[in-house]
């Protein structure tokens, strides 16, 4: 009989992860099932402390000053059984002149009644960068609630890039709340790609607060809605200082009976700042569709190519 760790690894692989990273001693990793740490490996330059406190997994990490890793830190969070709850609290610090990348797979392959909560706070000090990519796989039942709430402070000349992918299987109930603030010349780049189907309900709030002068923000979302799914995307950029530039870009493509709402919030509080936004909500772009159909593909085939590209 396969253990939960074995099954979690299989789900990780199905979601696109490469299990060999967990045996590579040059790469840091962390694997947590429910509130149990299955596996972890550290490399010099990164402090990582994981504790369980009343069912809450508390993760603390600190990237040392001047450290740059050639590989991402590989993370797997998940729950294999049909029912369960996972609550993770992350507190991170990236010191000056450091570069860190997390590649996290959040897998819940059999979810019927699963809850996953993430509460994160990350502080990126000056001249550093932190890339956080999370790839979710929630199985085919839609019986899950995923609620990540993350705040990030981006220091002077630093970069935060956050990618959220949920493009295979059902989404379930997703409620994302990210708030990123930047100091002078800081940059934030947020991207969410979600495929919703059945009665999935997706809510995203992504907010970039450009506090320091010359800071930049890009907030993008790509949602494909099928079935009777519902999505609501609130993309917010607040520019508070001179030279700040931001752009909001939201595409929600609707198929079947899916519905969607896009709310771009642009708040410019300095005359030398600029924030632009674009949003397209609704059916597949007609010109794109007809271009593909003019190659001899049916409407359905053409739609799959277009939404496949959008979610890539």
């Amino acid at each position: 009989m396969k253990t939960n760790q074995h099954l979690l690894t299989e789900a990780y692989k199905k979601a696109g992860g490469m299990p060999e990273v967990f045996s590579n001693r040059e790469m840091a990793h962390l694997m947590i099932h429910g509130d149990e740490v299955y596996s972890s490996h550290l490399i010099p330059g990164l402090d990582l402390d994981v504790q369980t406190n009343g069912g809450v997994v508390e993760v603390y990490f600190r990237m040392h000053q001047g450290q740059v890793f050639n590989h991402p830190v590989n993370i797997c969070f998940g729950i294999v059984p049909e029912k369960g709850k996972q609550e993770i609290k992350v507190d991170g610090e990236i010191e000056e002149d450091a570069k860190l990348e997390f590649l996290a797979y959040c897998v819940f392959p059999n979810a019927i009644k699963v809850e996953h909560f993430m509460n994160g706070r990350v502080n990126i000090r000056a001249n550093s960068s932190f890339h956080y990519t999370e790839v979710h796989y929630h199985g085919d039942n839609g019986g899950i609630l995923v609620k990540p709430k993350v705040t990030v402070s981006v220091g002077e000349n630093s970069i935060y890039q956050g990618n959220f992918y949920l493009t295979k299987g059902r989404a379930g109930q997703v409620d994302i709340d990210y708030e990123i603030s930047t100091e002078t010349a800081g940059k934030v780049d947020l991207l969410a790609k979600i495929n919703a189907s059945g009665d999935d309900n997706v809510r995203i709030r992504e907010s970039a607060i450009l506090k320091g002068t010359n800071s930049k923000g890009l907030v993008r979302s790509r949602i494909v809605g099928r079935g009777s799914s519902r999505s609501e995307v609130i993309s917010e950029i607040i520019a508070l200082n001179a030279g700040c530039y931001g752009h909001v870009d939201c595409i929600e493509t609707l198929l079947e009976q899916a519905t969607a709402k896009a709310i771009p919030l642009v708040d410019v509080q300095h005359r030398l700042a600029t924030v632009t936004h674009e949003a397209a909500v609704g059916r597949v772009n007609k010109k794109q569709l007809e271009t593909i159909m003019a190659k001899g593909l049916s409407e359905d085939e053409a739609i799959e190519i277009l939404v496949g590209g959008l979610l890539r």
Binding site: K287, E290, A294, K295, G296, L297, A302, I305
Partner: peptide, 23 residues
């Protein structure tokens, strides 16, 4: 329909080709 005509052997090169994200 467009795809039926394409399958019969008619092809179109657009004046302003569309952009395709991710393709």
């Amino acid at each position: 329909m467009i795809d039926q005509r394409a399958k019969l052997g008619i092809g179109l090169a657009w004046q302003e080709p569309a952009r395709f994200e991710g393709v």
